[in-house]
């Protein structure tokens, strides 16, 4: 387990002077799994009020809501760890959705009706995500442009292009007629477990192993903590950062597959509204915008937290406004907790 990021909690309690015992509140705030405790506490608190939240259908709804969001957020975690940011993910979701759909659709798709349609379609999704991610990374590392500008421009350009592309392939504002086999990725299940969950599990576990157990993962944390020190220690900084953007792009493409499969259509406005939710989820989990700190498990916690709050508020009959306001409050709360954490660590 990488201590730099992982155990800021228990590591911080050890100073040159020795171990100091802390109050339970401080320990709780310092815990890296705080967001899981908060989610559990919240869940238990609303359970008596809305018992429906614990029913099978509600739980499975939460899961379907959560999975695509989680996959994008996992990609974003990589970028944030090296102190970057990727705002283009939702536009990748939208663009990949329509281009991928245009390959597979039975209504005049490039490979419509062919047995190769589904594998080629999936490959298209992944290639688009990877290539856009590579382009983002190239601009940020080789041309030295700030990530926020590169990906913000990408966001605006690709969102527009996705709509323009759709008009060239469909009378309506989306591309329907997708093959059954593809739709099953988003909707079906295997061994009693939704396919989307298999996909998310595969992405999550590989990402976790990549970050925690490989040279590449360690390099990313090192770059996020001190880029210059990493460079002097022989870390190929530019290449590593470039790859985080590729990973983020590919994750967005996978999320796009899940979304598109669920909706059975390629839609150019897909995912448009979740951009800030993605970043919020990662940050609530404990990953720092300043880089050097972050874990896949934390991101799972952050996404779970947002989804549980969303669902419970809906079940409580709360309208959109409460959902929004509570989300904002939660982000601010997470930020304040993080600031407190820093202060406690500073005190030693």
């Amino acid at each position: 387990m990488l201590r730099t990021a992982g155990a800021s909690g228990n590591a911080a309690t050890r100073t040159a002077g020795g171990v100091r015992t802390r109050g339970w509140l401080e320990r709780l705030i310092l815990s890296e799994y705080l967001v899981f405790y908060l989610t559990t506490a919240y869940f238990l608190a609303v359970w008596p009020i809305v018992p429906e939240i614990a029913t099978a259908s509600s739980l499975s709804n939460m899961l379907t809501d959560m999975l695509p969001l989680l996959v994008v957020a996992i990609g974003q975690t990589f970028v944030l760890i090296v102190a970057g940011i990727d705002l283009s993910v939702t536009s990748i979701i939208a663009f990949a959705s329509v281009v991928g759909a245009s390959v597979m659709t039975a209504d005049g798709g490039y490979l419509g009706g062919s047995p190769l349609a589904v594998p080629a379609g999936i490959l298209t999704f992944l290639l688009i995500g990877g290539l856009i991610g590579w382009f983002n990374g190239f601009c940020c590392t080789r041309l030295g442009m700030p990530p926020i500008i590169v990906t913000l421009t990408g966001l605006m350009f690709l969102s527009g292009t996705a709509i323009w592309y759709t008009t060239g392939h469909s009378e309506t504002s989306s591309i329907a007629g997708l093959p059954k086999a593809f739709v099953l990725i988003g909707q079906g299940s295997a061994y009693g477990v939704p396919n989307a969950l298999w996909v998310a599990l595969a992405v999550g576990i590989s990402a976790h192993l990549l970050l925690g157990h490989t040279v590449f993962g360690r390099w990313l944390y090192a770059i996020g903590i001190n880029r210059k020190a990493a460079e002097i220690s022989g870390v190929p900084v530019g290449t590593a950062i470039l790859w985080t953007f590729v990973i983020s792009g590919v994750c967005a493409a996978i999320a796009s597959i899940l979304f598109t499969g669920r909706l059975e259509t390629g839609t150019p406005v897909l995912g448009q509204r979740i951009l800030l939710d993605i970043i919020a989820a990662v940050v609530i989990g404990g990953t720092s915008l300043a880089g050097g700190k972050g874990k896949i498990v934390w991101t799972v916690g952050g996404v779970l937290f947002l989804v549980v709050i969303d669902t419970s508020l809906k079940l409580l009959g709360m309208s959109l406004f409460v959902v929004f306001a509570v989300k904002g409050g939660v982000i601010l709360f997470a930020a304040i907790i993080d600031a407190m954490r820093q202060r406690i660590i500073m005190r030693g």
Binding site: L276, I279, A280, V283, L289, A290, S319, L320, F321, V322, V323, F324, A325, V326, K327, G328, G329, I331, L332, A335, I336, D338, A339, Q342
Partner: peptide, 27 residues
């Protein structure tokens, strides 16, 4: 809140204010 990036602060404000406006207008 020095050390807290304006990105996060104003992101939180975005959600809170939009929520407040939706509450006023009842969506």
């Amino acid at each position: 809140m020095r050390g807290l990036h304006p990105f996060i602060i104003t992101l939180a404000m975005l959600f809170i204010l939009r929520g407040a406006a939706l509450w006023m207008t009842d969506t």
